[in-house]
Computed example of a mutant assay.
Amino acid sequence: MDPVADLAAQLHGLGDRDSYLRAAGELMCRLFPSEMIGWHQLDGAARTAEIVPYPDIPLEGFAQRLVDTADENPFFRSYVTDLTVGMWQPRRLSDLVTDLELHRTRTYSEGLRPLSIDRQIALLSERKGAVSVRAWVISRLHRDFTDDEVELTCRLQPLLRLLETAYGDSRQLPEDASCSEAYSLTAREHEILQLLGRGLTGVAIGHLLGISPRTVAKHLEHAYAKLGCTNRIDALRHLRGE
Score class of each variant (00 low, 15 high):
120 Q>C: 14
120 Q>S: 12
121 I>C: 10
122 A>M: 10
122 A>Y: 08
122 A>N: 00
122 A>T: 05
124 L>Y: 02
125 S>W: 07
125 S>R: 07
127 R>L: 10
127 R>C: 05
128 K>I: 12
129 G>R: 11
129 G>M: 10
129 G>Y: 07
129 G>V: 05
131 V>I: 13
131 V>F: 13
131 V>L: 12
132 S>H: 15
132 S>F: 14
132 S>N: 14
134 R>S: 15
136 W>L: 11
136 W>S: 02
138 I>Q: 03
138 I>A: 05
138 I>T: 10
139 S>Q: 12
139 S>P: 00
139 S>N: 13
140 R>Y: 11
140 R>N: 14
140 R>A: 08
140 R>T: 00
142 H>I: 00
143 R>H: 15
143 R>D: 11
144 D>L: 05
144 D>H: 01
145 F>S: 03
145 F>Y: 10
146 T>M: 04
146 T>W: 06
147 D>V: 14
148 D>S: 11
148 D>L: 08
149 E>M: 07
150 V>P: 00
150 V>A: 14
151 E>R: 15
152 L>K: 08
152 L>T: 08
152 L>W: 02
152 L>C: 04
153 T>Q: 04
154 C>H: 14
155 R>V: 00
155 R>S: 13
156 L>Q: 03
156 L>P: 03
157 Q>Y: 02
158 P>W: 07
158 P>H: 07
159 L>P: 06
159 L>E: 05
160 L>C: 12
160 L>F: 12
160 L>Q: 09
161 R>T: 14
161 R>K: 08
162 L>G: 05
164 E>I: 03
164 E>H: 11
164 E>N: 11
164 E>G: 03
165 T>S: 12
165 T>Q: 13
165 T>G: 01
166 A>Y: 11
166 A>P: 03
166 A>G: 03
167 Y>L: 11
168 G>N: 02
168 G>R: 02
169 D>E: 06
169 D>V: 01
169 D>H: 10
170 S>E: 15
170 S>W: 02
170 S>P: 00
171 R>N: 05
171 R>L: 15
173 L>G: 09
173 L>T: 07
173 L>R: 01
175 E>W: 12
177 A>W: 00
177 A>G: 02
178 S>Y: 13
179 C>Y: 02
180 S>V: 07
181 E>P: 00
182 A>L: 06
182 A>M: 08
183 Y>I: 04
183 Y>S: 02
184 S>Q: 08
186 T>G: 12
186 T>S: 15
186 T>W: 15
187 A>E: 10
187 A>V: 08
188 R>F: 13
189 E>N: 03
189 E>I: 01
190 H>K: 13
190 H>C: 05
190 H>W: 05
190 H>M: 09
190 H>E: 01
